[in-house]
Design a protein around this nucleic acid. Structure first.
Lengths: 159, 159
DNA sequence: CAAAACTACGTAGTTAACTACATATATTCA
DNA sequence: TGAATATATGTAGTTAACTACGTAGTTTTG
């Protein structure tokens, strides 16, 4: 991967994705090693329901920052393995209200110590001179002010 | 996306991916706005061939850090739009040697000023208190020493 | 109060990476 | 030197996100 590393910031999207993939793969291994039957991709939905208890499909999608079709397919999986259940909202028949099952809540209790280990390991790994998590937050903040595209446009005009 | 941002480091894989996606989408817009017919996903291959001129399929895959099947499908696309061409290696008949076409080289010359703008925009965006690119390099370095999984295992045992 | 606009959810198809497996050629070693 | 192993490429199928589009309720408005 020499060329990509040497090409510097131009290949930053590729490197971000590579890092994300590696974290996720190790996540699978860590859950497995701790006897927990859970996939990292489920985390955003499950964690959101852990904190908010009852939400509609679109509300979950917004919380986790995915599109609603992606969210629906995650919800289908989670319903299949009985970690969540859903019912129609009587006040608004368009809505489907989602919540954790008892099994889902038990699983969360089981995962809490694993999450603690993960937090410790991730913190150890990312507490370097330039903190990765903070760097992400800072860049997200910058993008809110002005997107990469807008910045490029401005540089093209003034350069 | 409140919950994900608030859950801190546990959702770091999700946030890395989201950032990567946003960069790539803006990349598409920037190429388009500059009248260049090029997709960001082609960058690793094209840039590698720009620097190394003739390489086999597996050599390219290693340089860009993808699996060889992924690389083959990228190469197919690039051959279709005539940015690269390939021929059998006479010294080793298993190998296919890949290189840029004249069209590919011209396109690179056309893209160079766009890349400069991108570098400037990305640098502006990511030069914050904690530098994202450096943070990525530092974490990659840490992972080489000991993977996330190994760290989690060690923490579980000693904790 | 009916038409228009909006919101919530769902399905179908696409994309860009992956793993697993198959085949052909090259190299090594008993 | 031929059998075993390794390497290079290719194909098929999977995955986890996406966009585009359709339908059914809800809200707004002329």
């Amino acid at each position: 991967m020499n060329v990509i590393d040497e090409s510097g910031i131009l290949a930053i999207a590729t490197r971000l994705q590579r890092l994300s993939d590696q974290f996720r793969k190790d996540g699978v291994l860590i859950y497995k090693a701790n006897g927990v039957d859970f996939e990292p991709k489920w985390f955003p939905v499950i964690y959101t329901l852990h904190l908010r208890s009852v939400l509609s499909v679109v509300e979950i999608a917004n919380e986790i920052g995915y599109t609603h079709p992606s969210t629906i397919s995650l919800l289908k999986e989670l319903e299949k393995v009985k970690l969540i259940r859903s019912k129609k909202d009587k006040a608004d028949e368009r809505k489907r209200l989602i919540q954790l099952t008892a099994k889902g809540q038990e699983l969360i209790e089981q995962m809490k110590p694993v999450w603690e280990v993960m937090v410790a390991a991730l913190t150890e790994l990312t507490t370097t001179q330039n903190n990765l998590l903070q760097a992400i937050s800072e860049v997200e903040e910058q993008m809110k002010r002005l997107s990469l595209f807008e910045r490029a446009k401005r540089i093209s005009l003034t350069g």
